[in-house]
Design a protein around this nucleic acid. Structure first.
Length: 487
DNA sequence: GCGATCAGAT
DNA sequence: CACATCTGATCGC
């Protein structure tokens, strides 16, 4: 996890570390050696330490996450390769999987081969040894965050814990959780909790949920991804067919929107070579695999490299083409102007001039918009478009993390013994933890003697005047609930 | 010179 | 716009 995660990213009470791969400070109270590493997804703040050439422990992840990791290349390296300054790819994690060198006779020349990335199947309880006589059963569930992102259910002698990684627990996701037979044993009973866990194994309780608290301070609902996507598509349909669109999918996690656009307009989406390569690997997702094209001329919808956009969508805020010395737009423009000035020819009223004036619309995902302000934004934008106003950039409220209300609904499904935040702000010195603890108390089981494992003991005491600072934190939280102003 | 870590900008 | 990503500086080995 990003810096600031509790327990040095250990999924206590197990010696399992999640989304953290760098060395642990010798002064830390937690164990210093992880027996097992889990990876929830491949966003850069979840793979810290994995790039170290010295890393040599095995890592459990999903098949898609493994594919994405092994193709991972930072922007600079991608640009060097694209610009033909470097012939070969410089893959960030190539040291994690090293193939043996085998001669034509099957002779192995290089014995340093290894594959540290251990793919576990989805929705399949899988046993793992944790040292002598210790084993846990680990199950992966889709996390609705980005391709390859999973949650982990860890079951063993110390009880069961659920680690959400990063996730978006929108209503359909909660339904799928409720109907997942592997999680049903852990669902809370609606009313009578006293009868739970009499030892017959029918009703089980999670010791802890390690929760994605990235947006826990967002104390308001946000639109579902489906609402955001369908609303966006309605807006896109209002533009003339000659319009070009740039979808600023600046990180993994906007694929559902790309898929919906590809379907709605029955067209492919222009991708840079890197995204194309990654998407075309997704065996589990035929639509994602098929939606991309590396031919910029094939489509009006572009999700290519955002720092080196292709010539069709490389415009500034005023719609002027940037760096078009090798683009045909500029040369046509020049010829046209020359014709008009020197030969008195009228401007061509062909498709060329409409091409020159072609609109490029930027589509930017945002995360802080309520369902109401999204509706208002759509209405306002439709009005502007009907007026003939040029709306050059569109916002779409695509949250990849759950805000507080969704988190509370998710936790309430299970009523675990405790909630542990996946991320904390170190500058708040555990005050955010105290706040989170309070915010989820009513979604958890009341403390009793069955709380065999008490991580609270590990939490350093909050600073003086905790309640005052806590109030300040809540105020801050309330301040952040101001909905985004449309427009 | 490499790698880890952090601040800062986008 | 964005809580993820990249860059550059610093420090230690």
């Amino acid at each position: 996890m990003p810096p600031g995660a509790p327990f040095n990213s250990f999924a206590l009470p197990y010696p399992i570390r999640v989304d953290a791969f760098s060395a642990i400070s010798p002064s830390s109270p937690e164990p210093h050696n992880a027996v097992l590493h889990l990876l929830t997804h491949t966003h850069s703040d979840h793979i810290v330490g994995l790039q170290a050439k010295s890393f040599c422990q095995r890592v459990i992840c999903s098949a898609d996450a493994k594919d994405m990791l092994l193709r991972h290349e930072v922007y600079r390296e991608r640009a060097l390769h694209e610009g033909e300054y470097r012939a070969e790819h410089n893959l960030t994690f190539k040291h994690l999987k090293v193939d043996p060198w085998i001669g034509p006779d099957g002779e192995v020349f290089y014995h340093g081969s290894r594959d540290l990335l251990n793919v576990f199947p989805m929705d399949t309880p899988t046993k793992v040894e944790l040292g002598r006589d210790k084993e846990v059963t680990i199950t992966l569930f889709d996390a609705n965050h980005c391709p390859g992102a999973v949650m982990y259910l860890i079951e063993g002698s110390e009880g069961a814990i659920l680690h959400t990684g990063d996730f978006r627990a929108e209503p359909w996701f909660l339904e799928s959780i409720k109907h997942n037979p592997l999680l049903q044993p852990y669902l809370a009973l609606s009313e009578d909790e006293t009868s739970t866990n009499n030892g017959n194994g029918i009703v089980k309780t999670l010791e802890a949920i390690y929760l994605d608290t990235a947006c826990v301070m967002q104390n308001y609902q946000v639109p579902t991804k489906d609402d955001a996507t369908s609303g966006l598509i309605d807006l896109l349909k209002l533009y003339p067919p000659s319009t070009y669109f740039f979808i600023n999918s600046w990180t993994w996690g906007y694929e559902d929107t790309l898929k919906a656009i590809a379907r709605a307009f029955n067209c492919r989406i222009h991708l840079d070579n890197y995204k194309y390569k990654v998407y075309s690997r997704f065996i589990s997702d035929p639509l994602l695999r098929a939606l991309g094209t590396t031919d910029p001329d094939e489509t009006h919808f572009h999700a290519c490299e955002r720092f080196s956009r292709c010539r069709h969508v490389n415009v500034d805020q005023d719609g002027n083409f940037i760096n078009d010395d090798d683009g045909d737009e500029a040369s046509e423009d020049t010829i046209d102007v020359a014709n008009r000035i020197f030969f008195g020819k009228p401007l061509k009223e062909t498709k060329d001039s409409s091409q020159k004036k072609k609109l490029v619309i930027y589509i930017n995902p945002v995360s802080s918009m309520t369902p109401e302000s999204w509706l208002q934004y759509q209405a306002t934008t439709k009005k502007q478009l009907a007026n003939g106003d040029v709306v050059r950039s569109l916002l779409v409220p695509l949250s990849r993390h759950s805000p507080l209300p969704e988190l509370q609904s998710f936790v309430s499904l299970f009523r675990p013994k405790r909630v542990i935040p996946n991320t904390l702000d170190p500058s708040l010195r555990n005050l955010d933890w105290a706040a989170i603890d309070r915010v989820f108390r009513s979604c958890c089981r009341p403390p009793d003697s069955s709380h065999t494992w008490n991580p609270q003991q590990v939490i350093p005491p909050a600073p003086v005047a905790e309640h005052l600072l806590f109030l300040e934190l809540v105020r801050e939280c309330k301040a952040s609930t101001t909905p985004t102003n449309p427009g």
